[in-house]
Simulated scan of single mutants.
Amino acid sequence: MATIPELKCAIRETLESRGVLDQLKARIRAEVFGALDDQREHRPPLSHENLIINELIREYLEFNKYRHTASVLKAESGQPQVPLDRQFLASELKVAEDMSSKSVPLLYGLLSHFFGSSDEGRKVFLRGISHPGGHHA
């Protein structure tokens, strides 16, 4: 029969191997931030621009497996729990994507465009703006 410390260790290892422990820690961290946040200090309503910016950041964080940071961003910013639709974001930013650009966060594609990257697989073209090579999307 297992002792209590052995049982605790086995449960911890199981939760860690399933990734549940990290999710629980992130959730606790977000709740602590929420509890510490001064409830008397009301945040201004989340503007349309901030909603879009936060969503680009969230998509980047989740793509790179920065889930703890993403959970704190959602808790502190008031960002909706359900991510915004990618097509909606692209439309709001007036971005036209190809199949390869959809495999990375929009933020990568935007940077690729402005840095003039030659990496066609990560390029996202802005509608109506010419890019290297003279094409228009």
Rank of each mutant, 00 (worst) to 15 (best):
K74F: 00
L93P: 04
Q23D: 04
R27Y: 03
H113D: 05
H136L: 15
H42E: 14
R67K: 05
E120Q: 08
L107W: 10
V104C: 11
D85F: 07
E120V: 13
T69N: 06
P45T: 12
I53G: 00
L36R: 08
K94D: 15
S71G: 09
V95H: 03
E55A: 09
S117I: 02
L24R: 01
V82G: 02
Q87D: 15
V124S: 15
K123A: 08
L107V: 09
H68T: 12
I4Y: 07
E62Q: 11
S47Y: 07
S77T: 12
L7T: 11
S91L: 13
H135F: 12
A137M: 09
L106W: 06
K25S: 07
K102N: 07
T14F: 05
L126A: 04
A2T: 04
G134K: 13
S47K: 03
N54S: 08
S130F: 09
S71Y: 01
V20G: 00
E76L: 15
E92T: 09
L56N: 02
R29S: 14
R29V: 11
V95F: 12
K25I: 11
D37I: 00
P132S: 11
G133W: 06
A75L: 06
F114M: 08
S17T: 10
H48Y: 09
L126V: 14
A10S: 08
Y108P: 00
H48N: 07
E13K: 14
T3M: 01
I52V: 13
G121D: 14
E59H: 10
E76C: 14
Q79Y: 04
H135C: 06
S17N: 14
F115L: 12
E76D: 06
L106Y: 02
I11F: 03
I57N: 02
I4L: 14
A26L: 02
I4H: 01
